[in-house]
Design a protein around this nucleic acid. Sequence first.
DNA 1: GGCATACTCAAGCATCCACTTAGGTATGCC
DNA 2: GGCATACCTAAGTGGATGCTTGAGTATGCC
Lengths: 119, 119
Amino acid sequence: MLEYAEPDSAELDSVFHALADPSRRAMVDQLSRGTASVSQLAGPLSISLAAVVQHLHVLEQSGLVRSQKLGRVRTCAIQPTPLRVAEQWAADRRAAWEHHLDRLGDYLAQQPPDQRRKH
Amino acid sequence: MLEYAEPDSAELDSVFHALADPSRRAMVDQLSRGTASVSQLAGPLSISLAAVVQHLHVLEQSGLVRSQKLGRVRTCAIQPTPLRVAEQWAADRRAAWEHHLDRLGDYLAQQPPDQRRKH
DNA sequence: GGCATACTCAAGCATCCACTTAGGTATGCC
DNA sequence: GGCATACCTAAGTGGATGCTTGAGTATGCC
């Protein structure tokens, strides 16, 4: 029944941090439409190729991207699991909050109107 | 039909950045279970209250948390929308990648086996 | 071999980040 | 008024981040 391993804090740190930069998000976005080489990733970005390589390291360390080199060309591919880990973390907190609001609403609805001022 | 406004890069920057710190995530996690004062947020964390206030500013600037002061006490509440924005961004890229894999699979399945070596 | 391509690495630099301490203000209670 | 509580702000610090330039290495093609 274990669908997701509980993500440790360090994993969430690195995934959210990786996604917090617009250049890296653009790279992930491009990779979501298909694999790409390092220079293809650099193409749309107005930063040096060396900077792109550094961003790629960040993405690989977070697990969001994997790459392998064939000949001169390094081909990069997105990895869906860390995306889902981040997604799930946010969804869980949002669900908890909405559940909390529901219970609060039920509670308040049960109180007679002249008692509500106390809460 | 517009369900979500397209999030601008700056908003995603600030939301992902806010979530990239374990203390801030712990604060969001606590707030997902109900509102809390600043010192209640600081309670479980082993950092100074001043640091918690600074984290709170980051969370408020990202829109993840809102707060209001009543008397001496500032009460903080989570805001679900930025969580959903982050969630949706990740989900969209994951969906695009999975769709891409499907199309690639279909394409390869259409090729006669002796042609596949070319691709 | 010669040369372009596609990265890769290292050093340097300005900025940002998380955190602390020290001091401050506003509120509630006696 | 006196005092504790709850928060706020500023300044400083060590370390991480994003970027550049300059140089290097490996591969593919003629």
